[in-house]
Nucleic acid binder design. Structure first.
Length: 447
RNA sequence: GUGGCCAUAGCUCAAUUGGUUAGAGCACCGGGUUGUGAUCCCGGGGGUUGCGGGUUCGAGUCCCGUUGGCCACCCCA
């Protein structure tokens, strides 16, 4: 190792077999949740022309991404930092022939030239789910439901993670009503975005220039955990009526809340006025998924962006979607003790052998190991054998168990083998003719 | 881009105020015993102490640089 002077680039990961199993566990969960909800998989290049990214985000984005020119070439490319521009291009190119709504997902590697820290690397996997051509709250909810479905499938519960939902458009309308000019909104949003990093008093003080007194600032610090719109009895002592007058918000969000209820995910959702997302292009509902205690960065984020497809040269198309990275997700699963054990990972990722073939040490048995493996593989079974020299049955069984194999076949002689189920520990009382072993295993696996 | 902490075997860590040939456990490989995931015994491979320079009779240890890691800021599509 010390001799190895080639270290991986900053913020990248080397992937060993167990890492690959862990990665596949996550990507397969993403894929399953997407398909379950009717999304179809798409993908694009991992690098694009640089200007695809400056269109939306301006020149300032360049320092945040990996861009390059081919030696002797003139075009400037960039490793993709996100999928949305590519998605917009894919959609725009075939918009006329695509169904409404178009429901797409993708997963793959993305790259950002930022300094790595907890929950953030320079190369990471991201899952994107987007629904184009449907501007209804039902579409917003469907996208969020897909996200919740993934979280739930990994063993997370509403006690572990919260989906924080806001509505940018409604929030802005309200701010305008309060007399805050539109060009000040971005500054306010920036402060809202920093809520978690500022002491409460500092946060309230920072809001003062935008027309919120300390008491009123509480609606941002505490969030709006429960909608009280259909609770006219909510009177009595408490904040001034001005503070709780969230009619604006209720009008925008009630239809969403109804959809969440119908889809059975309302328990996961908090309405939270401080979630604004950094990006300017969100036009309606926005949301982030956070670990419940506030530990870790956002697990996922997204929202409605009804102008973006048009910006990339497509027809005006309402759209809603989100992205989720693998880095924070894995951290949260570890925090919560939900990352499967190594053996489970190998199994769930599909890397666990169906059968491990061992010999009892007799020369005639040794001769049958490879032929039996070959026969098993011919019928589509994942078969392995040891590469160790030992004849020790105990050590060979350990080798088999370490591989995660479901069954072991102990070859007794040129004709017979004894089967053992490594998961239950049950071993057949009598050996089986070797020629029948493949079919026997298939049966026991339910194939 | 800025700042703090860190770097010894594949992993977790030792190594006396700077002092012989840098060790141990686990893991890996091989041999042996008991036909069952195990125990026990024996042996082996592995390190230019991340890299480069400096101070010193002598550096894993002290100094500088560099690369990488962790954490925070900036940013977060």
């Amino acid at each position: 190792m010390a001799k190895n002077t080639h270290q991986p680039p900053t913020g990248t990961r080397d992937v060993y077999p167990l890492d690959a199993a862990r990665r596949r566990f996550i990507t397969e969960s993403w894929r399953r949740a997407s398909v379950l909800h009717g999304f179809e998989e798409v993908d694009g290049p991992t690098f694009e022309h640089l200007d695809l990214y400056t269109v939306k985000s301006g020149e300032g984005i360049i320092s945040e991404l990996f861009s390059f020119t081919r030696t002797g070439g003139e075009k400037t490319y960039a490793l993709r930092p996100e999928f949305t521009p590519t998605l917009a291009r894919l959609f725009a190119a075939k918009a006329g022939s695509l169904p409404k709504p178009t429901k797409w997902f993708t997963l793959g590697a993305f790259f950002r030239a930022e300094r790595p820290q907890r929950g953030r690397l320079r190369e990471f996997l991201q899952w994107n789910v987007d629904m184009l051509g449907d501007d209804s709250p039902a579409a917003d909810a469907e996208v969020i439901a897909t996200c919740v479905s993934l979280l739930s499938s990994l063993g997370l519960t509403p006690a572990d993670v919260r989906v924080k939902v806001n509505h940018r458009y409604a929030l802005q309308q309200w701010l305008v009503q309060r007399g805050l000019e539109v060009d000040k909104h971005a500054d306010l949003f920036k402060i809202l975005d920093q809520r978690g990093k500022l002491p409460e008093a500092d946060f309230a003080a920072a809001l003062a220039p935008f027309g919120f007194n300390t008491e009123q600032a509480e609606i941002f610090t505490k969030g709006v955990v429960r909608l009280t719109v259909d609770d006219p009895a909510h009177k009595g002592p408490g904040p001034s009526p001005e503070v709780v007058d969230l009619t604006f918000f209720a009008q925008a969000v009630t239809p969403l809340a109804q959809q969440f209820t119908q889809m059975g995910i309302i328990d996961w959702v908090d309405f939270d006025l401080s979630v604004v997302r950094g990006l300017a292009y969100y036009t309606g509902m926005v949301f982030e998924v956070h670990e419940a205690s506030g530990a870790e960065r956002a697990i996922a984020g997204g929202g409605r962006y009804d102008n973006l497809v048009e910006l990339f040269g497509g027809p005006k198309t309402p759209a809603v979607g989100f992205g989720m990275g693998d880095v924070v997700l894995a951290l949260v699963l570890q925090d919560r003790g939900l990352m499967p054990t190594d053996a489970e990972l190998l199994d769930r990722a599909g890397f666990a052998p169906d059968v491990f073939v061992i010999s009892n040490g007799q020369p005639e048995s040794d001769e049958m190991v490879r032929p039996l493996c070959a026969a098993l593989r011919r019928v589509g079974l994942h078969a392995r054998h040891t590469y160790k020299a030992t004849k020790n049955v105990g050590k060979l069984l350990k080798d088999a168990a370490d591989s995660g194999a479901k069954f072991v076949a102990i070859i007794e002689n040129a004709q017979l083998a004894t089967l053992k189920d490594l998961r239950s520990g049950q071993q057949d009382p009598a050996p089986t003719p070797i020629s029948l072993v493949p079919e026997m295993i298939r049966q026991r696996l339910g194939m």
